[in-house]
Design a protein around this nucleic acid. Structure first.
Lengths: 342, 342
DNA sequence: TAATAACACGGAAACGTTTCCGTTGCAAGC
DNA sequence: GCTTGCAACGGAAACGTTTCCGTGTTATTA
């Protein structure tokens, strides 16, 4: 009934506990022979080291936490498995933790560090606004993953991995412009936020200005704050409002694919067709975008590469082999069937 | 730099460590006055109890783990937040853990129990086949959530919460039959599996047989084993194959909404229309189903209620206030626009 | 051959809590 | 006035590891 402990193994093998510890941790200072003998006993008696005791006894733990806000958002949840794989590959324990409020994510991180003796933190989510955070209070290395790179921000030495939202936002709007569109609407993030959505919105403005097309502020729409951001539901509600204004536009840029899914619905309900009446582009490149009707043209974020880079940067900082760096990855323009040439 | 420990607080307050422990744990045997004094100091010095030490020192922990296989599947990931809320409400710590292989999920559970001294386990995922598991080896209470209820299984005393897949599968096929369909295809789970998909497939057979419609085995299709189950990608591949056989059918039952999303694409690519040429029904009732074109008629599983029930049953078993029970919830038929009357 | 280094291992402290038990002071009961 | 009981607290063991240090044995070197 009671669990077998390291002492039991030691007693059975007639060795000291430290020897058992050396065996199971692949430490030096032990002969191959006794190691094998101990490992066999471990297996035989189904011994599993207790994590709490391990973390307490060791000078430091091996735990890295991923803190995420939109735990349910498919864009992020599709990365959990990758993080686990990548971190375990490097020998780290992995904790996934979701926070309920974007405001206190740093406080939550600090609490976790103390509580679980974290070795590092990965903040997952583009919604994070580093300017609102007391980053200097975080006592362990951390990396922002998929975070907004805002050139207006005070030069931060925080490590981050993501795409250039402004640049990539501009690219996809330029794609529309090249196809003859001048009346282009946008559904961006929550108003006033300086997160992901804001960067893509800025790219939108830059693209229009670069082409000499006047920006019509009425075509710029924002997510509802009361709803969870970047959901189909939100996209539907906002797009419906936009359509009901009666404003003319031939193209729509949704700053996330899930938003676009909702926008699709609103457009269909209004009796319009995609891309015949309205061309739509999305952003993110979730698998789903290839299956909706019509498949959506979008900027694909290299999620797997992001995970790999995030883990690489963070573990490098933990090892001391590398310093904080800002990794900016390229997005791919996935040209599908949701746009047409005017 | 170094973290403040309970000893520091004790020293500062000029009390013993046990008194501090009593204060932060709301224990008895301490005066209101000293408790407040200690709590203030705790706040002032940002003291946070170390989880490892706590788990080690305490006779038992307060941790419940959710073990999930398809960590990325939107149906399950949409429940993570609810589980966290519900468990925290009852004062439990919550760990989300994904396993990479369905085979060793029990072994993984047992390992976790020892490693983290779990108090209970929630197995999340309909794909679980209890007959393949050595459940008797699990030393703590556990509940299967959204698991397949198979009447053929040996009467198990395992706790579970879910819907009756056979019954609900039958209902939605009957819905199609009532609307005049007799040539009904199905995309089920992986062949040979006794999990979720198998139950719904059986419901499909029962509905046809009940209506005196002969079952055409060629219209029964299964997921590819090499792909992850219940994805749009898988649904697309299987549906495409089905269409290429040239077999006649007027309706298609996809045993998950995500599968249906992929099937939609295959159907569109073949030049057919929904529901004009083929009526499609799904299963699960994910939000997305309301946004695809056309919105899909489906059986909605009450996920929030499932979470609440699962936590209720499990905590009841842990407290000893209730025994293992099998909770069977009703699904709702959501009638939308993907089917037509023949 | 003697001194030294390397290796294999055991003992015990340390990690930061909880919890049991013992002690003190004080009020209540006879 | 003496016991009894209780509330409030302190001390210390215990939880299961890791890690430091010490010791004995064996291999290497001068």
């Amino acid at each position: 009934m009671n669990n077998v402990t390291i002492k039991d193994i030691a007693r059975i093998c007639k060795v000291g506990v430290s020897t058992v510890s050396r065996a199971i941790n692949n430490d030096t200072g032990i002969s191959e022979e006794t190691r094998n003998r101990i490992l066999e006993t471990v297996k035989k008696y189904h011994y599993v080291p207790n994590t709490s005791a391990r973390n307490l006894g060791a000078a430091e733990t091996n735990t890295i936490a991923v803190l995420v806000y939109s735990v349910t958002n498919i864009f992020f949840s599709s990365m959990y498995g990758m993080f686990q794989t990548e971190l375990e590959k490097k020998g780290y324990d992995y904790i996934l933790h979701s926070v309920k409020d974007t405001q206190d994510i740093v406080a939550e991180g600090i609490r976790l560090v103390k509580e679980k003796r974290l070795k590092g933190i990965i903040f997952l989510g583009g919604w994070i606004d580093p300017t609102k955070m007391r980053l200097e209070d975080i006592p362990v290395p951390y990396v922002f993953c998929t975070v907004y790179q805002d050139i207006e921000l005070p030069k931060s030495d925080s490590a981050s991995v993501g795409i250039d939202d402004i640049e990539e936002g501009r690219r996809i709007v330029e794609y529309l412009i090249e196809r003859g569109h001048t009346r282009i609407a946008i559904i961006g993030g929550v108003e006033g936020d300086r997160a992901t959505g804001a960067g893509r919105l800025r790219g939108y403005r830059e693209a229009l200005e670069g082409a000499g097309i006047p920006v019509d502020e009425r075509l710029i729409r924002h997510m509802k704050k009361n709803l969870e951001e970047f959901t189909a539901k939100n996209g539907y509600a906002v797009c419906k409002e936009l359509l009901e204004t009666g404003l003319e536009f031939t193209a729509l840029f949704c700053v996330s694919d899930l938003t676009a899914v909702g926008a699709y619905r609103a457009i269909y309900e209004s009796g319009r067709r995609i891309p015949d009446d309205i061309s739509v582009v999305g952003f993110d490149g979730i698998e789903l975008g290839d299956y909706i009707e019509p498949p959506i043209t979008t900027m694909h974020q290299p999620r797997d590469q992001m995970v790999i880079e995030t883990v690489r940067v963070l573990t490098g900082m933990i090892d001391g082999t590398s310093r904080a760096e800002q990794v900016v990855l390229k997005a791919d323009l996935l040209e599908r069937a949701s746009t047409r040439r005017l």
